[in-house]
Amino acid sequence: MTSTAASFTTKELMATFISHQVRDGERVAVGAGLHVPRAGILLAHMLRCPNVRLYLAMTFTNLIKEPKMEPFYTTYDIRPTKWAEAYVFHEDFQEKPRFISDTFVVGGLQIDKFGNSNLIGVGKDFKHLTFRGPGAVGTTSMAHYVDRYYLFVQSHDKRIFVDKCDFISTVGWGQGGADSRKKLGIPGGGPVYCITPLCVMDFEEKSKHMRLYSVHPGVTVQQVVENTGFELIIPSNVPETPAPTDEELRTLRERIDLEGMLRK
């Protein structure tokens, strides 16, 4: 049964969409700071994917027997290590990236039409940036090696969605084209979807140019176009992003997001 549009938040909708990207049996890195992707991955685990290995706060674990998730916000918090089946030494990140995760979520100060993203900074001169970003963290290496990844941003405007990133910290589809990653000599399936508070976008198969995939309930195609700084491919039929089911919402609220971070 499907819920009514008024009864869930955009964050719950985005988390549910992300949850459907997780495949059972894979390794999945759970970032702590981004509440929406974290909730989405845990939702997938609780409802559909009992065999994922969660990389969480420097440990690997499986949480299907946890009736409720105690809140944790950070990658360095020792407290979630009580669930650990294994510790991960952080340098394993370089020793074998594919042991960390099969998929990943990448954010960006800027994202361009081919899904390249930038966490370095905004400006023309690296020595004098107009806005210095936090840095790439592990996104460059993880996005390179994983099977596929997802772009996720917490706002959707023309400052983020630009024709060309000032700097690229994570390669999506490079200069465009389905063979663009191969041409650069890089493996991995690249970005699949870009999830924002307005919509979901994917990449047109041949050009790998960003395309509108679905709009969230109450959002118009025009609104997405007006807030995107490059020409987005708009298919003739743009569906609504699927609403969470009652079971998904209940699981989110009663087992995962007890503090209501997705309802704020």
Binding site: H90, E91, F93, Q94, E95, P97, I120, G121, F126, K127, H128, L129, T130, F131, R132, G135, A136, V137, G138, T139, T140, S141, M142, H144, S169
Partner: peptide, 23 residues
């Protein structure tokens, strides 16, 4: 302080990601 020093060009930065860092 990092943001300010970087924007003003007061700090030399070895820009890298975690994979490169451990390399």
């Amino acid at each position: 302080f990092f943001r300010t020093a970087a924007q003003r060009g007061e700090l030399e930065i070895f820009e890298c990601d975690e994979g490169m860092f451990y390399c």
